[in-house]
Amino acid sequence: MTILKHLIYKEWVKTRWFASIALLLNLGVLVYIFMSLRSSFLSAGGVTYLSALLTYKTQFFSIYRYIPLGIALLVGISQFAPEITDKRIKLALHLPLHNLRIIYTMVVYGFVLLALCMIPGILIFTGLISIYLPAEITLPVLQTMLPWLLGGFCAYFLIAMIAMEPVWKFRFLYLLVSYKVLSLFFMHLPIGNAVSLLPVLCLVTCLSSIAPVYTSYRFNKGQL
């Protein structure tokens, strides 16, 4: 247990500043979207604004699309870049714990940190937009943002997978596959149109969460 605590502390030391930036970035963008929504709502008038939203299904929050991906990059790179420099992760993998446990302590730590960076902002945002928007619009808005959030989590798992791959040519190949997989999460869909895609995206995210096991195993065994 003490080893795990130390492992988590090590992760915290590596990621704390980047996670703080990610948290502020997330909150800042969401508050900006809310201010923009409020301004448009008040200047156009409630009926006109909501009617336009319902008719044109415009994404007033589209600026948020790549924020979860950016947060995943910040957390993932800050967490795994120091580990792969000079193969420092080998030190952690030689601790008297099962390798899978060590890897998943790191990955779950990153996942929780990512969730803590994104979820509070989303909850505050939901509360704020509910002042102006009825539930029939708030819910599709969240349904539209959910693929982006899942895309953030999936990107984090794929970063972990790529980071722990020992061979550069394979890293490049994984990067190409990851790009294609992630493009599924960031398709330009009208508000609420992603509902039928959500189960697929959840499945892809779950499957990507086990990907780091494969490359970390290769990393540990020095397989080329």
Binding site: L50, E136, I137, P140, P190, G192
Partner: peptide, 8 residues
């Protein structure tokens, strides 16, 4: 089409 359940 996409249906919000809210209409004018």
């Amino acid at each position: 089409g996409l249906y919000y359940g809210l209409c004018e």
